[in-house]
């Protein structure tokens, strides 16, 4: 299965629709997106591709983008992209504690990690097709 430029744009559009609560305009086409928090975006993209291929929730770029933007909106004003990684660690820990997990090929990861992995996969695809 492949994913289209349209998927990416829909995801970005939903993000923009969240309005002023979002600190960054997290366009996949402009500047660093939330996947900057990942240690290795290429590795995460491989996870994301498996999630998209599995075509199960949350294998949906727009929904993933919306959930990540909602999390980012909880950060203090002025938070910089470089500060995103500690926040991600907190979100991941909270997800595990609350049992918000996603399975991919038997692996358990958090919904937030899965969302970022999907975004990384879509970014990669966008770069390849754009």
């Amino acid at each position: 299965m492949s994913w289209s430029r349209r998927d990416i744009l829909i995801g970005a559009g939903l993000s923009a629709a969240l309005g002023g609560a979002v600190l960054w305009r997290l366009s996949l086409d402009e500047g660093p997106g939330p996947t900057v928090a990942l240690v290795d975006r290429a590795a995460a993209a491989r996870i994301g591709r498996r999630l998209l291929e599995a075509a199960r929730p949350p294998a949906d770029g727009s929904a993933a983008r919306q959930r990540i933007d909602t999390l980012i909106a909880t950060l203090p004003a002025g938070t910089r992209a470089g500060d995103l990684r500690p926040a991600l660690a907190d979100w991941v820990a909270a997800d595990f504690e609350e049992g918000r997990m996603v399975e991919v090929e038997g692996w358990y990861l958090t919904r937030t990690e899965a969302d970022l992995a999907i975004l990384a996969a879509l970014e990669e695809a966008g770069a390849q097709t754009g």
């Binding site: 990942l38 240690v39 290795d40 290429a42 590795a43 996870i47 090929e105 990861l109």
Partner: peptide, 24 residues
């Protein structure tokens, strides 16, 4: 920067990159 080598467990190295002790 290197793709994961195929091991006995799929996505294993990728999962390692998500852990707290792995630095960019």
């Amino acid at each position: 920067g290197r793709p994961a080598e195929d091991g006995p467990i799929p996505l294993e190295t990728e999962m390692l990159t998500l852990l707290a002790g792995v630095e960019p």
